[in-house]
Every structure is written in structure tokens, then in C-alpha cells.
């Protein structure tokens, strides 16, 4: 409550927003405000001017891309993801994960763009977007560029965004044929902040895993792909036993942050469990050939 003095502006166009952001180091985009408002309330960072981008048409809407993937405007809310027929059809799990972010009020305001640009390690969407090979479309007055989601998250509250740059949309490629996705979290309470998460995508070739993505969240400051585990999975049987064996070494050598909810060692163990469950879900989804299917909860 009771923020510091701050300016507010609601630009009428994307260009105008980029202009303001380019000219003022102390400007910050305000999207859903479901994190930024808290930052301001608790006066942990100060902002000169809030640039309200939430009503910009250029950042709204979900579109199918020519290749059957999705282009999601940065200001699309979790609730819109949850209810979008396109999302449910092409990437069912993305809608499902969005449907389990905290609560209805936050889902009605929080945006995919804000969820990523904050780069809070507890946020739900980053690990999933990395597992889905999503691409972040960035724009500044200087022009537009694309950054792979795997390269977008740079650290605790840090991203590849340059000053004056906005995330305008997220492109999610179509699920490869024969693939499925999975997502699991170990949370303090239902739909609450997670201690560990894992997101996975596997592509099956008959009874074997042809390709995989395994992304862990909260074992480090940013979502990390466990390429060793992926290598163990790839070419292996798509059975419980072989998935379990491949995931046994997950997070070894990592030092997850310890806090009141558990030690570093506990989190490492949990990363293995979450990884195995996410991969198993992905396998089941691939078998059921529902795109990115099976409810992973939050």
C-alpha cells in the first residue's frame, strides 16, 4: 500500500510507448501489474514513470501462425490463455498451466509478457515456454528481434531485454508430430508458489523417445534445461523404468536455493521426482496424442 510518488502514462500506440521507454531510464512498462504493483507497494524499487501497455492492441490477442503454432501478444492474460480454443487445441498444457496460476483475480490481470519479463524464478510460465521452444519477440525504437526463450532468462529478475525494449509477443512453435508435454510443481499449497518445477516435452517414435526437452525451475535462478538427462532419455524406451533411470541423475551438481520450505538437498531430490513425473506425463500425452496434454496442475 501507499506507493512512492510516481508518474503514469498510457500511450496510445506501441510506437509512443517505445518512445517513452527509450527516452527515460526510469520508465517501466506496466502490463498486468500483478507483480509490479507489489514492488511499488513495498518500495523495493523505484520507478519514475509507469508506462501502461495493457490496452495496446499491438500487444493483445492470440493468433495461429502459418505453421500451426501460436503467436501470443505480450499482454494476453492467463485467463485468456486458459479460455482460448486455439491454445487448448495446439498447446493444451499451456492453457492448463495458466489456469493454475494462483487465483482467478490474478489470472484476470497477469500477462504472459509480465510473467516472463519479471524473470521471477517462481513464475509458472518460463520453464514451460522453454520446454516448448518458444521464441520471444522483442521490439524497441531500433527495431525488432527474436530471442529463443532458452536465452531470454538471464538471472534473478533479469532478462535479455535491453533498456527501452518491450516484449511484444511470444511465438510458440507447433508441437512436433508424436509429441506431448508435461508439467509438474511441488508447491507449498494448492496453486501456490512452487519450490521446484519441471516441464518436459517428448517426441515419441513408437516405443522410444526420439527427442526430449527437460526444463527445471527453481533449482537455479532461471529455468535450466537438463541436457544430460535429455541425452539419457533420447533413444531410450518410453517406459516408466527407463524414464525413471534417465531422471535419477537430474539436478546432480546443482545447488538449489535453500529456504524455510526445504534444504538444497531436498530440492535436488524433488527435482528428480518432478522431472520424472513431468516426462512421464509428456509420454502419456504423446501417446494420447493430445497436444501438450495431461493436466499437470500448476
Amino acid at each position: 500500500m501507499l506507493l512512492e510518488q510516481v508518474e503514469y502514462v498510457r500511450p496510445q500506440s506501441l510506437d509512443e510507448a517505445l518512445e517513452i521507454l527509450a527516452n527515460d531510464d526510469g520508465a517501466a512498462p506496466l502490463a498486468g501489474g500483478q507483480s509490479l504493483t507489489n514492488v511499488l507497494k513495498n518500495r523495493v524499487a523505484s520507478v519514475d514513470v509507469l508506462v501502461d501497455i495493457s490496452r495496446l492492441d499491438d500487444l493483445a490477442g492470440i493468433a495461429r501462425t502459418a505453421d500451426g503454432g501460436l503467436s501470443i501478444g505480450a499482454c494476453v492474460t492467463y485467463d485468456e490463455l486458459d479460455r482460448s480454443a486455439d491454445v487448448r487445441q495446439t498447446h493444451w498444457l499451456l492453457g492448463e498451466v495458466a489456469a493454475h496460476i494462483e487465483d482467478q483475480q490474478i489470472r484476470n490481470k497477469g500477462t504472459i509478457g509480465g510473467n516472463c519479463c519479471l524473470s521471477d524464478p517462481t513464475n509458472n510460465l518460463p520453464p514451460l515456454l522453454v520446454a516448448l521452444d518458444a521464441v520471444m519477440e522483442l521490439r524497441s525504437r531500433a527495431g525488432q528481434r527474436s530471442v529463443a526463450s532458452a536465452d531470454f532468462f538471464k538471472g534473478y529478475f533479469a532478462t535479455a531485454l535491453e533498456p527501452g525494449e518491450l516484449l511484444v509477443s511470444v511465438t510458440v512453435p507447433p508441437m512436433p508430430a508424436g509429441s506431448g508435454a508435461g508439467y509438474t510443481s511441488l508447491a507449498v499449497g494448492a496453486d501456490a508458489k512452487a519450490m521446484v518445477r519441471a516441464a518436459a516435452r517428448v517426441t515419441l517414435d513408437g516405443g522410444t523417445i526420439a527427442d526430449s526437452r527437460l526444463v527445471l525451475a527453481r533449482v537455479a535462478h532461471v529455468p535450466v534445461r537438463d541436457t544430460d538427462a535429455e541425452a539419457r532419455l533420447n533413444g531410450g524406451d518410453a517406459t516408466e523404468e527407463s524414464v525413471a533411470a534417465a531422471c535419477a541423475g537430474v539436478a546432480d551438481g546443482m545447488q538449489p536455493i535453500a529456504d524455510v520450505h526445504g534444504s538444497s538437498e531436498y530440492r535436488r531430490q524433488m527435482a528428480k521426482v518432478m522431472a520424472r513425473r513431468a516426462v512421464s506425463q509428456a509420454v502419456a500425452a504423446a501417446r494420447g496424442s493430445r497436444n501438450g496434454s495431461k493436466a499437470g496442475g500448476n
Binding site: N42, V188, A192
Partner: peptide
């Protein structure tokens, strides 16, 4: 204090 607000102090919700 490690739980100085409801953000850290997880209060039981209707789902818990």
C-alpha cells in the same frame, strides 16, 4: 523474519 507478509506466509486457502 522469513515470512513477513502473506506472500511468504502461506495462509491456508479454500483449496488447502
Amino acid at each position: 523474519l522469513q515470512e513477513p507478509s502473506f506472500y511468504e506466509y502461506h495462509v491456508g486457502t479454500a483449496m488447502d
